[in-house]
Simulated assay, not measured.
Amino acid sequence: MALTIYNKISILQLAFFFPSLVVAGTLTYRHGFRRSSGWIYLVILSLMRIIGASMELATISSPDNTSIAIGAQILQNIGLSPLILVLLGLISRSYLAMSENSRPSLPNTRVLRLLQLVIVVGLLLSIVGGVNTGNQVAKELGNGSPISYKVASESKAGTALMVLGYALLVLSAMALLFRIGNIPLGEKRLLIAVFVALPFVFVRLLYSILSIFDTSNTNFHQFGGSTDAGYYVLGMCTAMEIITVIIFEAVGLTLPYVPHNERGSLLNPNRAVNRFDVHGQPLSEYPKPQQGGQA
Rank of each mutant, 00 (worst) to 15 (best):
R34K: 14
R110P: 01
L283G: 04
V118W: 07
L141F: 11
S20T: 09
L198W: 09
I11F: 06
R179V: 14
R204N: 14
A295M: 07
N101V: 11
F178P: 02
L90T: 05
G89Y: 09
L106N: 11
G181D: 14
I183C: 02
S94D: 08
V278H: 05
G292I: 05
N261C: 07
E187V: 03
I212T: 15
E56R: 02
Q73F: 04
I40F: 13
M240R: 00
E187N: 14
N270P: 00
H279V: 03
Y231G: 12
T244E: 07
T28G: 08
E140W: 04
P82D: 15
Q13D: 15
F195T: 14
N268S: 00
F33S: 09
V273N: 11
Q281S: 04
L114S: 09
S126F: 01
P287G: 01
P104L: 08
G230S: 06
G32A: 12
L27E: 12
S94M: 05
R113V: 13
G122D: 03
N101H: 08
R110E: 12
V196P: 06
L47C: 13
V111E: 12
Y95D: 04
I74A: 12
V251H: 05
P282R: 11
T215R: 03
I183H: 02
L83Q: 10
Y29K: 13
E241H: 13
L206F: 12
V120C: 04
F33R: 13
M240Q: 11
G130L: 00
L177W: 08
M162A: 08
N261W: 00
A160T: 13
I50A: 05
S148L: 09
L176Q: 06
Q294H: 06
S208T: 13
S81I: 11
S126W: 00
P199A: 14
L125K: 05
S61E: 15
P107F: 02
V258A: 05
L171E: 02
L80Y: 01
Y232C: 03
F178I: 07
L266C: 01
L106G: 02
S10K: 04
F16T: 05
M55Y: 11
T66K: 04
E187S: 13
S67G: 00
H221G: 07
I246V: 15
A97Y: 07
L47K: 03
R30L: 15
R204Y: 10
L168C: 02
A24S: 14
N219V: 01
S67K: 03
G52C: 05
K139Q: 13
G89Q: 10
L27R: 07
D277F: 03
G79W: 15
S10C: 09
R110C: 02
P199E: 13
I119V: 10
N274W: 00
S62Q: 09
L106W: 13
N7L: 03
Q281K: 14
L75G: 02
T238E: 09
P19C: 01
S102F: 10
S54F: 00
P19L: 05
S265L: 08
V194H: 12
I242R: 14
R189A: 12
N143A: 14
L75K: 03
Y6C: 01
Y166A: 11
R204M: 08
L168E: 09
L27V: 08
V121E: 11
I91Y: 01
Y231W: 15
E249Q: 15
